[in-house]
Structure formats: structure tokens, C-alpha cells
Nucleic acid binder design. Structure first.
Length: 444
RNA sequence: GACCCUGUCGUCUAACUGGCCAAGGCACCCGACUUUCUAUCGGGUUAUUGCGGGUUCGAAUCCCGCCAGGGUUGCCA
């Protein structure tokens, strides 16, 4: 029997890291074993579910590349995949429970499931055998007075109906699993194989909830400029360590290495810095074109207009080792795309620091103007020659040129900047800097 | 409160079925290099493996107790 696993979110809010990680482990298992990954929307609580939340979850899963084989948008033989559309099925299963004498109706109409009140053992792939003593809890409500059904019931019914073989979910469900097993037995079905994976905690060890940093996929990752593969990689390693020499791994490598038995049983704390480190690693591995495509929304958002695609790709590529998040890139490259960039305070001060700076810049400008070929190498050579002729070290001229050409004190190599903005622009940029220096330093 | 899970450097984790100075990544600190850096290179600090007992020649690994964190205990999922 090929494995069938599912991710069953409730659309009450954004896709949460915990949920994303649960989906990811299910996906990894399915892809590893050649099984089927199903997405089922548990929207039985009409009062709390929203259409927008549901779309957000789908968006988040797609962004992470967690494609499902059955579920919303793709269909499948066991649909519908929205619990809100499966009432007839639940009614039928409730009738089974009735026939077996395992339910009773209260005065207000709510229906409760009679627990067997025997010891129940959960055979968990991560936690081992966990035995729960006969319960003293009140019987469990499975249907509300208004006819809608409760999570525990529909979850079990759908796992039976959708032929789930394994159920991998957060450890917060472990304590309730005996109820599900009780239900499976009452319905004459065999429970799936369970694996309860550890929860993700905040850095301080408290429970990570909706509003905590790093909790929402869309807000904390997509909008911040993370790469899907990087988040995928980091999430996979929260609670699991692949047996590999390295930890920066591709999706394919992660699938190949995945082993459910290696998942830890201790909760993991979320480390945003490590997550960003992963992102930096993946960022550097991107080609100029891929990097440009990824950063484009952030460039657009910063009001940067691109005229030359190849040049833009080379530009973002030149700063890829300076950043760890895509959203940081615009601040590093904006001056490449405009010539009215501001001179940062310390940069302006540096330019005016020495009276001879103007002459040095003018010399460099003249050297640039004389260039017949314009490659990074020839530009570099021209700068060195200009410095030598002026009697200063190359290291003295470089910072001045950087300041004049970019208005900033940080960035890619000066030759790279000069080469990318082009010969003509270099002339204009240096002249503009000279003008600014003259205007702001009447005394000199 | 009861029940369940867990407890190795700040953090994520290693350490074959008990056996070499408890290993690595991230973070941090220092140094070097460089035209800049949130880059790169080099080096380094941080753990009596939650605490206390016990078993053993030997325990992070096994047993007991305690403590701490998390979870569950809903007509939420």
C-alpha cells in the first residue's frame, strides 16, 4: 500500500511556520516514499474560517513548493477536500456510531461520543509507545446543536475516507490521539500510523503564536525577502538533522536524506539569524538572472526602474554577498539606476576632507574619458594609472571614486561600479560630485 | 490540579547497541586582508550533558526521585 499523508490546516489565519513545517515533513515523506500528499481544508468552524486565510495558506504552501497531489485546485478521487462540503459523509458516519450505540444526544441537541474508557496506546514513530489510562474526561462532543461537526470527529472520518496511512502532525495533538483511536475503533477502522513532531518555540522558549517574529510565512518570509528553498531548508532542519556533511541542502537532497525515524522529540526554538544565514547561502548560489527575478518585486517596490535587464542582473549579482535578505538589496544598488543619488553624510564629508580630492577625481575622470575599451579590467587599470600619475596610492583614490560614483561608502568593488554604470555615466557622476564639493565648500 | 512529551555550549544539533580531551553549524569575540562591507580568511570563548541519587571497571547514553519548559484536558483546530 503506497503511503497517503495529508496536511489539514484550519483556515483561521496566515500559514504559520509550525503548520508549514508539518506540511513540509508530510511532503518530504510522500516524495521520499513515492506516496501521495493530500491537502485537506478543515473549515468546519464557520465562525472562525475566512476565505482570505484559506487563500493565504495555499499561497504559502505554493511558495514553499509544497505541491499536493489531491486537494483544493487539483481535485482527486476522495473529494471534496473542504470539510465544510462533506456534511453528508459525516452524517453517514454518525449513523454508524449510532448503530453501534456509541453516541447520545443531549437536551440541546449536541451529540456526544461515548468513550470506551479503556487504556489506549498510541504507537508513535517519534515518541514511541505512549499509553493513556482509561479516561475520566466527559464524553466528547462530535456534533454541535446546529448540526455542524467537531474537529476530532471529522478529522478521523476523513482520514478513514481519504485512506490515510500515516498521520504526521504537531506534538500538540499527541494528548488527544487516544480519542481519535477510540473513534477509529468505534467505526470499525484501523488507525493510521502516527508521528507527532516537535513544536517550534520562540527563542525564549515560549510558545510561538501568530504574532511572534518569524511565525507567518507570508509576512515574515515572503515579504522580507527570503528565498523559498532557504526557508524550506531551514524548516526541514528544525527537529531533524539529515545525515550529511553539510547543512545547506537542495530540495532533492533533503528528499533523498529524509528519514522520519530521525525526527527528534524535543521542541525546537526558532532562530531567525540561522534562517537568514541559510538565505544568504542560497542567495549566493543564484545566477544573475535568477537573482534579478527574485529581487524584482523589491526593486519595483523601491521605485527603481530598470532599463537594461543584463545590466540590472549584473548589478544585483555584484552585491549578492553583501546581503542575506532580498529586501536589503535596493539600498545597496539604487544609485546604479539613477544619477541624482544622494551623497550620504559621511561620504560628503570625506570628499571635502582634503582640498586635493577634487584634482584627484578630475584626473580619474580624465583617465576614464581616455579609455578606448570599457571592461572591469581596463577600468581598474585606468584607476591604477591615474593614481600613479597623481602620485597617490591606488588605495587613496578608490574611496574617493566610490564616494563620487555611488554616494555611498560601501558597495561592490569600485571598478565594478564604474564598469556597470558605463563610461559616459562615470563622467557625469564625477562631475556632479565635483560640483557638489565646490558648492558646499565655498572656502576651498 | 491531572495526564502526556521533552531537558547536551546562547541556539540548532553530533556522539554506533554505555567506553578515546562531549563534535559541528549559527551567533558572539579577536586578528588578518581589502578601495568599502553585514563580505572573505584565520583563530578563539562558551556545556562538571536540568538537579540529586543509583547500577557499572566505566553513563550524555540504563533505573528512581525531583525540578524546569512545552503540550492536552472545548459544543477551537
Amino acid at each position: 500500500m503506497t503511503p497517503r499523508v495529508r496536511f489539514a490546516p484550519s483556515p483561521t489565519g496566515d500559514l504559520h511556520v509550525g503548520g508549514a513545517r508539518t506540511a513540509l515533513f508530510n511532503w518530504l515523506f510522500a516524495r521520499k516514499t513515492g506516496g501521495t500528499f493530500i491537502l485537506r481544508v478543515e473549515d468546519t468552524d464557520g465562525a472562525r474560517n475566512t476565505e482570505e486565510a484559506q487563500r493565504g495558506i495555499v499561497r504559502g504552501l505554493r511558495w514553499l513548493g509544497l505541491d499536493w497531489d489531491e486537494g483544493p485546485e487539483v481535485g482527486g478521487p476522495h473529494g471534496p477536500y473542504f470539510q465544510s462540503q462533506r456534511k453528508d459523509i459525516y452524517d453517514a458516519y454518525l449513523a454508524k456510531l449510532e448503530a453501534a450505540g456509541r453516541v447520545y444526544t443531549e437536551e440541546n441537541g449536541a451529540v456526544r461520543f461515548k468513550f470506551s474508557r479503556t487504556a489506549i496506546t498510541v504507537h508513535d514513530l517519534v515518541c514511541g509507545d505512549v499509553t493513556f489510562a482509561p479516561t475520566e474526561e466527559p464524553d466528547m462532543t462530535v456534533r454541535r446543536p446546529d448540526g455542524s461537526y467537531i474537529f476530532h470527529f471529522v478529522n478521523v472520518v476523513d482520514d478513514i475516507e481519504m485512506r490515510m496511512t500515516h498521520v504526521f502532525r504537531g506534538e500538540d495533538h499527541l494528548s488527544n490521539t487516544w480519542k481519535h483511536i477510540d473513534l477509529f475503533h468505534a467505526l470499525g477502522a484501523t488507525p493510521p500510523t502516527y508521528a507527532h513532531i516537535p513544536l517550534i518555540l520562540n527563542p525564549d522558549g515560549s510558545k510561538m503564536s501568530k504574532r511572534d517574529a518569524g511565525s507567518a510565512i507570508e509576512h515574515s518570509y515572503i515579504h522580507e525577502g527570503f528565498l523559498p528553498d532557504a526557508v524550506f531548508n531551514y524548516l526541514a532542519m528544525l527537529g531533524w538533522t539529515p545525515r550529511a556533511e553539510k547543512e545547506v541542502l537542495s530540495r532533492e537532497e533533503l528528499v533523498r536524506l529524509f528519514d522520519l525515524a530521525e525526527i527528534h522529540s524535543a521542541n525546537a526554538r526558532f532562530d531567525m539569524q540561522k534562517c537568514q544565514w541559510f538565505n544568504a547561502q542560497f542567495l549566493r548560489a543564484l545566477s544573475p538572472e535568477a537573482l534579478l527575478a527574485a529581487v524584482r518585486p523589491f526593486l519595483d517596490n523601491a521605485g527603481i526602474t530598470i532599463a537594461d535587464e543584463a545590466m540590472a542582473a549584473a548589478v544585483v549579482f555584484s552585491v549578492k554577498e553583501k546581503v542575506s535578505l532580498l529586501k536589503e538589496i535596493p539600498a545597496w544598488v539604487h544609485y546604479f539606476f539613477r544619477e541624482d543619488y544622494p551623497f550620504e553624510a559621511d561620504v560628503a564629508a570625506k570628499l571635502k576632507a582634503k582640498p586635493e580630492n577634487a584634482a584627484l577625481l578630475a584626473a580619474a575622470s580624465a583617465a576614464f574619458a581616455a579609455q578606448a575599451s570599457w571592461t572591469e579590467e581596463t577600468v581598474h587599470a585606468a584607476i591604477e594609472a591615474a593614481a600613479k600619475e597623481a602620485g597617490v596610492k591606488t588605495g587613496a583614490l578608490m574611496p574617493l571614486l566610490r564616494a563620487a560614483l555611488s554616494g555611498q561608502s560601501r558597495g561592490p568593488g569600485v571598478s565594478t561600479i564604474a564598469h556597470l554604470v558605463g563610461q559616459a555615466s562615470c563622467q557625469r557622476r564625477i562631475q556632479r560630485a565635483l560640483d557638489a564639493m565646490a558648492a558646499e565648500s565655498p572656502a576651498a
